[in-house]
């Protein structure tokens, strides 16, 4: 659906993005994750034909963003970072205007506006002037505007910025729903948000792509960095344990279990041992471990699964990138 090859954008001598390449298939929900100023907005602005790249090639729905920009714009719904609203218009008249501008046939304008107002929970404020609405509602109007012509691709730049926690949850839910029928690219610098909504996260840092991360239900399943191939991270799982027991005896007992791959003692304090246990991914050995410990007369204080979080991956990728630049 979206194919970006070696995209580079310089603002004068200042680098916006450099050699950015990625593909997004139809129906994917992809997050752009990166620190502020990493190039997320620049990439999105190029894809939406708001500005041209210095070099490189990008196609959306099979159309070139430079040569067939009008066609591309028909297929894209875009929510810019600062939600662009005509504050003096009412919600309904604004959405009607945007529908006409985006080429919705005259007969379908009313129906489309009704549909998106319904989807974004705006029906009861339809006659209100946008300037009088709260930030959360304005954001919804912004999203409704991006949806009004039923585009195949949705590009949302920081869709939940500046909202209160309840509104954030609502907007995320809405985007998740939209992801079922649309190809969605959204940018964010909020990690939990990315891992909650997206199946894949593209990490951008200093204008380059630092890596791709695939997620399932918020858990990292594979990582791909730089030019390398994707690596599955599901080959082992880790448990964190807090046990009152003699260290050596505990270690030996755990290592004796067939599913356990590795045991590391992290900390000992007042006869309480904190350790990490790596085990094979296809087994859940929590019950076995707890009965082993209890059976030996030791005290099990804590037992919890540890998963590789997007946060760890992100920090690793981003800091390595910084080292690479310095080196």
């Amino acid at each position: 659906m979206i194919d970006v090859q070696n995209l580079t954008k310089y603002y004068g001598s200042f680098r916006g993005i450099e050699n950015v390449s990625f593909r997004v298939e139809a129906g994917e929900v992809v997050g752009f994750l990166g620190p502020n100023g990493a190039g997320k907005t620049t990439t999105m602005r190029i894809l939406t034909c708001f500005m041209p790249a210095t070099s490189g090639k990008a196609t959306v729905a099979g159309y070139d963003v430079f040569k067939e920009s009008l066609e591309v714009r028909k297929h894209i719904g875009y929510l810019p970072e600062t939600v662009p609203l005509y504050l003096e218009m009412t919600v309904e008249s604004y959405l009607k205007y945007m529908a006409k501008l985006r080429g919705v046939p005259k007969k379908r304008v009313k129906e489309r506006v009704e549909t998106v107002m319904e989807a974004c929970g705006l029906t009861h404020v339809r006659k209100r002037v946008i300037g009088h609405l709260s930030k959360g509602y304005r954001q919804r109007v912004g999203i409704a505007q991006a949806l009004v012509h039923d585009p195949e691709v949705l590009i949302l730049d920081e869709p939940t910025i500046g909202l209160d926690p309840k509104q954030v949850v609502e907007i995320r839910q809405l985007i998740k729903e939209l992801g079922k029928e649309h190809t969605v690219i959204l940018s964010t610098h909020i990690l939990p948000e990315a891992s909650m909504i997206c199946r894949r996260v593209i990490i951008i840092n200093e204008g380059r792509i630092a890596g791709n991360v695939w997620l399932e239900g918020g858990r990292v399943t594979s990582i791909q960095t730089g030019e390398g191939a994707a690596v599955q991270v599901g080959d082992r799982r880790t448990l964190s344990l807090l046990v009152r027991a003699p260290e050596e005896a505990l270690k030996t007992a755990l290592q004796g279990m067939p599913e356990v791959l590795d045991v590391r003692v992290e900390d000992i304090h007042d006869g309480v041992v904190r350790l990490s246990v790596d085990h094979t991914p296809d087994s859940d050995i929590r019950e076995k471990i707890s009965s082993l410990i209890v059976g030996n007369g030791w005290g099990l204080l804590e037992l919890s699964p540890m998963e590789i979080t997007l946060e760890e991956v992100f920090l690793k990728l981003v800091s390595r990138e910084i080292e690479g630049v310095r080196g």
Partner: peptide, 13 residues
């Protein structure tokens, strides 16, 4: 206000 971004990314010449 930034609404120009809306206008420029709509399929309008």
């Amino acid at each position: 206000t930034g609404t120009i971004e809306l206008l420029m990314t709509s399929p309008v010449r």
